[in-house]
Structures are given as C-alpha cells and as structure tokens.
Design a binder for these strands. Sequence first.
RNA 1: GGGCUCGUGGUCUAGCUGGUUAUGACGCGGCCCUUACAAGGCCGAGGUCGGUGGUUCGAACCCGCCCGAGCCCA
Length: 924
Amino acid sequence: MSTDPDATEREAPSLEGGYDPEAVEKRWQDRWVDSEVYAYDGDPGQDPNTTYAIDTPPPTVSGSLHMGHLYGHTVQDFAARFQRMYDGDVLFPFGYDDNGIASERLTEKELDIRHQDYERREFQKLCREVCQEYEAEFTDKMQGLGCSIDWGHTYKTIEPRVRRVSQLSFLDLYEKGREYRKKAPAIWCPECETAISQVEMEDEERASHFNDIAFEVASEGAERDEFVISTTRPELIPACVSVFVHPDDDENQDLVGETARVPIFGHEVPIIADDRVDMEKGSGVVMCCTFGDQNDIEWYQAHDLPLRVAIDESATMTELAGDYEGLSTEEAREAIVEDLEEEGYLRDRWEITHAVQVHERCDTSVEYRVSKQWYVEILDHKEEYLEAGREMDWYPEKMFSRYRHWIEGLEWDWLISRQRDSGIPFPVWYCSECDHEVMARREDLPVDPLSDEPPIDTCPECGNDTFEPEEDVFDTWATSSLTPLINAGWDWDEEAQEFRMDNPELYPFDLRPQGHDIISFWLFHTIVKCYEHTGEVPFDATLINGHVLDENREKMSKSRGNVVAPDEVLADYPVDAVRFWAASAAVGDDFPYQEKDLTAGEKLLRKLWNASKLVDNLAPEEPDEPDELEAIDRWLLAELDDAVEELTAYLDDYEFAKARDRLRTFFWNTFCDDYLEIAKEREDNPSTEYALRTAHRTFLELWAPFLPHVTEEIWQALYADSEARGTSNNSSGERSEPRDDGGELGETSVHVRDWPTPQGYEADLEAGEAAMEVISALRRYKSQNQLSLNADLEAVSVYGPVDGFEDAIRNVMHVRELTVLEEPPEITTEVAAIDLDYSTLGPRYGSKVGEIDAGIESGEYEIVSAEQRSAEKSSGDEPRDDDEGLLRVAGEELEDELFEVELERTYSGEGEMLETESAVVILE
RNA sequence: GGGCUCGUGGUCUAGCUGGUUAUGACGCGGCCCUUACAAGGCCGAGGUCGGUGGUUCGAACCCGCCCGAGCCCA
C-alpha cells in the first residue's frame, strides 16, 4: 500500500464526481490479482456439484490478443462470475499453448537462429525463454480485460509437467491398445517435412493446368494402340503404377486387362477396373500413382499395387524420376510437360483452377508418403465419441450436429507423430535388431530418447543391446487435448499403481468454451483423449461462441484490413462497456463490432453511477427494515424478486443476452425512471429508504458479473465496510485485525458475495402497473402541453385499481388534489371493437372463424350482458351461472372468455380525460 | 459438390412448440434544465418479418422451391 496520503485518498473508492473508468478499472484489476480474489481454493474432497470448473482452451502465445480472445474470455467470465456468486467455488484457469510450431518460428525469428543448430532440449529452453516475454505481455493484456481468472492456476503446454502428462497419456493409450505404429501412406507436408493429420489440411483454390497425355497400349492384340488420361500432376507419371477404368464405362471396357506403357519412362502398368473412377472427368481413364491423392492410396491398398516413390520428403524428384532427379516437383512438372509435347504424347493442355489440399500452417500443397508413423485408433470408437457428444449439453444446441457430421466423416485414424525437431518427444526406443518397441518407465517421465537412455539394457525379444531412439515428437493436439487432465492434476500414482487427480472434484469439467471454428479438432481430440483415459466425458457442457465481425458483418482478416484490435477499443472505452457489448449477442451467433454498442455500455455505467449517488443521498446506508412496507416500496421489491428469479434462470442457462436485456430494462426503466422519481418525493420515509438500499445492493450484485469494475467501485465505496463490520458482529469473537489490504478484499469484494435470491415480497403488481400507467399518462399530458414535468396539476381523478399508490402518483406528478373514483366517471361508452381470443376460438370453431370475423366486421352481432342473460334465463329451465355475458354472432353464442369488448369512452364531464390500459384519468 | 446456419423499420436485434396491435436499443423528428444523470427525461414517425408457392380458420413462426450471406467439410 502506498504511504503517500494523497495517493491513498485518490485511490480510495468514492462516489465523488463522475465515474472515471480509466483510473478505477485498472485499480481493481490490480487489486483483484494481488489479493487473489479469484483463487480456486476448493479442496479435493469437496462436492463436485458445488464446484464449477472451466476448461479454457489455451491461446497461442505468439499471436497478439485479438477480439476473439477478448470475446471468448469475457463470455467465460460471465459464467465464472455468476457461478462463483451463485453456487460455490469456481476454477477459471488459464493456459498458454506455446508448444506448437508457431512458438518455434517465433523463437527462431526473435533470436535469429535455426532450430536445426540446437539440441532438442536446448532449443526448447530457448523457446520457453522467448515465450516467457510474450506470455508476460499477453498476461498483462488478459488482466486488462478484468476476467476473474485464477492467475495462480495456469499452465504452459511447453512446461515439464505438461510434457510428463503428454507422455503419460501416450503410454496409457499404448497399454490400452489404442495406439499403433504402422508403415502406411500418410499426409505429408514437404515444407515442414513432417507427416500431418487430416485435420491440419485445408483446401485452397489454385491455378493449374489440365494435361491430356497419351499412353500406349503395350499388350499384344489390343483393340487400340493408345488412350488418353487427364492429369494436373504430370510429374507423378514416373510414380504411375496402374491405370483405372470404371466397370460401367462401356467405351473403355476394352482396355481392362491390357497393359499400358507409361510415356517417357517406359515402364508398363496394368489397366484395372474399379468403381472409384470418376467417369465424368476427362476421358474416363485415370492413372494411379503412389501417391497423387487419397484415391491412389485406396487403390494401392485394394489392388496390392507396387510402391513407386518419385518424390522425396522435401518434394524433390527421386532417382526413379530418371533425368528429372533432383528437380523440385514444380520444375519437374514443367520439364516433363515439355518433353511430353516434344515426343508427341501431350494431346491437350488448358488452364484451370482447382482445389488443392494444403497444410494449414504453411499453405504448401501436401503429398502422400509411405512412412512409419504412430496412430491413435479412433475409427473403431466413432460411436462412443458420438455418444460422448450426446451426453454433453451444447450451447447452442445446434452445434452438436457439426460435431456429429465431423465424426461421421472420419476416414483416418489420428496420426500423432510429427517429424519435427522440437515438440514433446515420444518416450520410445526401438531395438536396433528387431525393432521391438521399448517404452519409457512412468516414473522417469518426462524423457527425451535423444538424450536419455532406454530403461532396459537388452531387448526382451532378441537379447540385442543397442537401441534407436524415436526421433519424432507429438502432434500438438496430442497435448492440447489434455487440458482437462492438466487442470485437474492428473498423474500416475506409483504407490497405488493407478492414475489419480490432485483435484478430482473438478473432473468432468462443467464447461468447455470455444469458438465454433475449432469444434472439429480441439473439442473432438479432447473428448477422444480424456474419454479413453478416464472413461468419462470430460465436459458437462460446451459453450460455442460466435465470431466478432466487423461493422459490416464481415469476417475480420488481415488481408481485408478490417481488423479491430482490442487495444484500440480499450483505449477508447471502459472494459465494462466492452463487456456489456460482448453480452449482447446470443451465444453461438456471430455479431458485429460497432462503436455505438459500446456507447450504450458507457451510458449504462454512467446511469448506474448517478443512480447510486442519488440512492446514497436519499437513504441512510443501513436503514432498518420497517414492520410493514408501504405499497409502492413493496411493489418495487416484488418486481425485483421477479427479476432476480428470471435473471438467475437465464444466467444458469448461459443466456447472457437475455439476462443483460432483462436487467437493463428493469434497472433503467422500472428502477430509475419510475421508482427513483417517486422515491425522490418520499424523503425520510423509512419504508422507501429500506427499499432503496435493498434494491441498490441487489442491483450491484446482479450487475457484478457483467460490469465487475463499476460495481466493485460502488460496492466498496458504500457497503464493503459495513458488510465487514456486519460479519464480525455475527461471529463470536472480536473482529480480527484487518489483514493487509489483499486478504480483506477476498472477503469484502462484491464478486465473492452470494447471488441474490427472491425474498418473497408480495405486492399488488396489478395496482403497481396501473399506477405506472397513470403516471405515464400524466407525463404524456405534460409533455404534450409543453409543461415541465414538475409543473403542478390542480386536480386529478383516477378511476382504476391504484390502491395504495395514490400518494406515489400525487407526489411524483405534483398533483395538488388527487381523487380516486369509486364509480366510473361520467362517460358515455360505445363499442369500438371486439377482440376475439383466437387461441381458443380457433380450435373450437375451426373454419367458422371466418364467418364470425365477418359478422363482427359488418356489425351483425349482439352482445348480451349478464343481466340480460339472467333475465332471459329466468324464464327458461335451468338456472345456472349467469354472471357471464354472451356474444351472438354468425349463429353462434360465444361465451364471455372468448371475447373482450373494447369500449370507446367519451367524457362528458368537465376537464380532460386520459385513458390507459387499465385506468381512466380525469384532469380538471 | 455435401452439411449447418442466417436473412425482421436506416442500423443491430427480440419474438419462431402458428393465435391476428412484431420487442428493444441506436439513429431520426418534436418537447422538457425535473432533488442523480441533457452522454438525461418524455413524446412521436418509421417495418407486413429476403422472394415465391403451399399447409391451416389463422403463418415472421411449419413445408417446398428460388434469391442472397456466412461457416464447416469435400
């Protein structure tokens, strides 16, 4: 704490002057962090039901904070703050994903080095150092968002603890038989020189050429000498292993069973029938190369074709390409086309654009290569993963179908090995004689086989005593998918010989939030991993947030230059205003960033501030509750009860936009515009003073999840002290010496209070409603007559249910003489319209409704009043309930509950008549 | 090409287990300094719910087709 008295004074929360978010927000952010207000201090034995845990997807460090981070974390924070107040302990952790290729590149760039020049552990150390700076900056910015993250509960995917968890995970799945190592075609990035998984590919439109190339028929006695195939990749011709024709392709059926000679290279390949041929494309005859695409792989496997590798791991032509050896695929393509043309094999060539599959990280088009890789078997558990998805609550629900379609479309097992120089290594060695797999011991983890020795001296299979380390590292998703386990402190218990968690009460996590673009891989992989390890679905619910678009509802992108940086926004607007904007979108919907929406938030902060000042002026801090509240005050608190109830339900269901609007409307319109205006005229009234303070405290609590800074400032300025005193009064001993500022805030903060519950106030809500209508009508009258709102009104009569609210009306509208009429005023009424209750009329009368409508329209109807009816009935036989009127129309008798008569009133007395929904007001 | 989603006053939106007067905010026009707030209050204008066909007594809401936008996956 500062010793400078001026500074202390300036720093103290107070309602003096206007609200100054710039100073206030920073101050509270710092104090919340310093005092660890949001620290998770649940204990491992506690009830999981009162523990709310969020599993946050860790952002990549090297990327700067963007609107997606801001929005995503703010939405999570709404849930965290609400749950913390509502139902017990909350864990809102934070992680950094610094284990990926992105941070390696960052390190290389920052230090101007190449990872190849370093030993793996050394390079990782450098990565950690470089990332640390970026992480510090990122942390700072995250704290500037005011999220209630527990900064004592963080992790980095590059840290040794996480490496250990990743390797443990690998060993566990291996022992469970869920992982295998296999030599098979895999998707390969020649730029990164690594295998990648299906999910790391994306399609990109590229300009290319279609080439029609003639192949000779080599076998004797064939019906023709040659045929033509079309390809975009002539450089694959040396890798051609067969030619395919569709079995239904009559035109080319003669070729099946013959042999083709590959142009230039001269090797001969079989011509085979297979229904995977696309007959619509080109000539209907296609070549199969190892490998041009996924189809080639299927053919290779189905027809047991030979492997011809013409392209190496760096996309350079191999020895097999003959004269083209050493060229890049691009160069070889051009050279081969030229030579084909020269030798007369090229029959046609034209430009096209087509979708090429590229590695999402570097945009290099991928190859398919046969190599030995590690896989997690997933295809056989698709049903279980689907079922796991069904067990979770999806917010919004519709997002589940994306997950389902994703799983249904899976065709490959999950390839988890990457041929990269850094990352988390496989804890595996292989016998140099028999290739037997040797796993590290759990207690030794984390290990790096490149620098650590295997746990055994001789191979149990063949007795050999030399081993080769596995050089590959894990796919980063293999680690990122473990965050629930990392957050719950999952580890191997050597003594018990089983996995256990430091905080089992956290798992499964209550909420997994993330953007809708990463459902397919991040969420999916996390479910796969955690489910396989624990047999449980890792999340009760998943919250899928939409994207922040630009003001024209277009996606923000660097290339379009329409990116809005959080820094810029926060420089101009209070965090609370930004949060209020973030709460405006229904969860799952994309929504635009528009400045005017931030202004709306700013206005709200100002309103809350000013209303608080007024409340503070109107009522003592802690008024006693009177034995009997007056009608107007009881009405407010009853309305507040309703609001609390609805709001709680909305928030519990992640309906932040609805909660926000409900609260804003009630606070602004009902409390400020209606009640406060009335309260101003009721100074020194104990009933009103009590209601004012009760409502005000409750409003601060209700707004706290949305507007944490301004509510904390007001709370601390007005109530924190008395609450602290109150607590000590209730407890047995004296109040303990105030601890340092930090510890105290953990108890006095508005954010650690209990969420409000309805207090059971009962009031005549109808009367309140009628009174507000009357006030509104009088306001309208003044406004239309250009009177100021505090102008006096001589005499007003009201006919309507405003019992108990007479004084409120009189005072707030400055009515000298208010009369409540027992009888309707001198008015003549005339039927203006008849409203039918179609919802019951429709089902009952069906197509007759049209006639009824027409009858009313044309005036051919009769209203029989209750009196008339009873007179009629008295002559009839059965006397029954005759309180009700009747409507005779179109040959039907409609009962009272089916229609309502709208009257047009004409006032024949003195003065002016104002009408409202449920009251009549006469001004004299 | 397949799937999902969306299309409501000038702008952003609520409403969508069908019920006839379509919600609110911003913007716009007018009035009002009233015991906090003029960056406030009050009042008002403005939409037939992308188009079209159908189901129904009745459709913004259900169904078909079309147009437009976005996302995911090939």
